[in-house]
Simulated assay, not measured.
Amino acid sequence: MKLTALLLSLSLTASAAIAQSDAASEARDAARDLEEAAVALQQAESSRNRIKALTQVVQSYEDGLAALREGLRRAVIRQQRLEAQLVQQEAEIARLIGVLQTLGNNNSPTLFLHPQGPTGTARAGMMLADVMPALNAEAAELRDALQEVRILRELQLGAADTLQSGLDGAQAARTALSKAISDRTDPPKRFIEDPVQTALLIAATETLEGFASGLTDMSPEPEGLAPLPDISHRRGKLDLPLEAEILLYPDETDASGVTRPGITLATRANTLVSSPVAATIRYRGPLLDLDNVMVLEPQPGLLFVFAGLGAVFGEVGEVIPTGAPLGLMGGNDPKIDAILSQSGEGSGQDRTETLYIEVRDGKTPVDPSEWFNINKDR
């Protein structure tokens, strides 16, 4: 009975420990995506629309790197759980091996006699016959667990080169995109900026609200382009301009004691920020203490403000399509050692940059969830 209980305990523990995981395969898929992004980067140089092609390449790199980080994180967690559970089973496995060795090494037939006589002996033999297949299955599961641990370790050892290659490729794609944008000639414009008027507004501005209100009062004469289509039907459906997590919702106070009507997002360094909708660039550049700011006007009187970028693209007055690159977040890509050391921690450890988004209807700030698809459940 002790042997049966021991095997049952070992079986339940091993079954829980060796639940199948696809963390390793997900990490490999992400590495393959990064290889495909590298090929796409070479092809983008000859594309008819280099800016669009390079924008997609940068996003592919970002998606691949994010997936690889997540795959590594899950792989590390999986490995740690397996190793911990195998350590917990070590004592039970040792006891089981001891019992089996005792049975196998002793040739005395009396060892197999049951105190209850022939009937008890027969029952004990039947019990052992039932136990052996289960024991073989446990041995196979343990071999699988040890093999999975080995695979996960090898995956982490090879991850450094893959991550470095992906980071280098992403930076090359960002550089190529910046150059392609700066090389453009005569982008379509709705109006020509008056730099003196803009400078005066900035000089007189003490708050983002005051600046946005001043922009609303400045109504440049259009240059003959057709008006942008009404986007009222897209209320609440617009995608956020980058992959990020929401840190603060409207009217929540930050660590500095500041309360704002928009949302604050946490994202990774150098992440590409894209336009969620076709719009006119009303302002781009540094403002107050908000780093670089991009203000879009998708329709008259409606302003989308993006503050906290490290670099901004385009020109004031330019009309941009949905998905057009607006700029890049600041910061520096983390070192490989830092990425690997964070793999076993919770997600979001590398989201060091923040982007603030404010929506203004006329001179009144509105909840960004009225326009953007934001899950407000916490």
Rank of each mutant, 00 (worst) to 15 (best):
residue 119 T to G: 06
residue 345 E to M: 12
residue 287 L to P: 05
residue 150 R to Y: 12
residue 370 E to R: 15
residue 15 S to K: 12
residue 250 P to N: 03
residue 99 V to P: 00
residue 223 E to N: 13
residue 93 I to G: 03
residue 128 L to C: 05
residue 321 P to A: 12
residue 32 R to Q: 12
residue 162 T to F: 00
residue 110 T to A: 13
residue 161 D to W: 01
residue 139 A to M: 14
residue 374 I to K: 03
residue 47 S to D: 15
residue 225 L to Y: 00
residue 347 S to R: 15
residue 237 K to Q: 14
residue 224 G to W: 07
residue 315 E to K: 09
residue 46 S to W: 03
residue 118 P to L: 11
residue 112 F to Q: 10
residue 132 M to Y: 14
residue 127 M to K: 13
residue 359 V to M: 05
residue 339 I to G: 08
residue 43 Q to C: 00
residue 374 I to V: 09
residue 61 Y to R: 04
residue 49 N to Y: 01
residue 143 R to Y: 03
residue 186 D to E: 15
residue 246 I to T: 11
residue 228 L to W: 06
residue 143 R to M: 02
residue 11 S to F: 07
residue 347 S to H: 13
residue 50 R to F: 00
residue 188 P to T: 10
residue 372 F to Y: 04
residue 332 N to V: 15
residue 256 S to W: 08
residue 78 R to H: 11
residue 337 D to S: 15
residue 335 K to L: 13
residue 224 G to I: 05
residue 19 A to T: 06
residue 327 G to Q: 06
residue 176 A to D: 01
residue 177 L to E: 03
residue 264 T to M: 06
residue 136 N to Y: 12
residue 180 A to T: 08
residue 80 Q to D: 14
residue 354 T to C: 04
residue 64 G to C: 09
residue 350 D to V: 09
residue 267 T to I: 06
residue 366 V to Y: 05
residue 111 L to N: 04
residue 373 N to I: 06
residue 157 L to F: 05
residue 73 R to D: 01
residue 153 R to Q: 11
residue 8 L to Y: 10
residue 304 F to K: 01
residue 161 D to P: 00
residue 40 A to N: 11
residue 112 F to G: 02
residue 144 D to A: 12
residue 71 G to H: 07
residue 229 P to T: 09
residue 161 D to K: 05
residue 148 E to K: 01
residue 328 L to M: 10
residue 351 R to M: 11
residue 32 R to Y: 04
residue 13 T to A: 15
residue 282 R to M: 08
residue 113 L to P: 04
residue 327 G to C: 01
residue 298 P to C: 06
residue 144 D to F: 07
residue 98 G to Y: 08
residue 166 G to Q: 04
residue 359 V to F: 07
residue 110 T to W: 08
residue 337 D to V: 15
residue 28 R to M: 02
residue 229 P to S: 14
residue 43 Q to P: 00
residue 311 A to Y: 10
residue 141 E to Q: 15
residue 286 P to Q: 03
residue 66 A to E: 14
residue 240 L to A: 07
residue 279 A to D: 07
residue 25 S to E: 11
residue 248 L to G: 08
residue 13 T to R: 13
residue 231 I to W: 03
residue 33 D to W: 06
residue 258 V to A: 13
residue 301 G to H: 04
residue 316 V to L: 04
residue 217 D to F: 01
residue 56 Q to G: 09
residue 321 P to H: 10
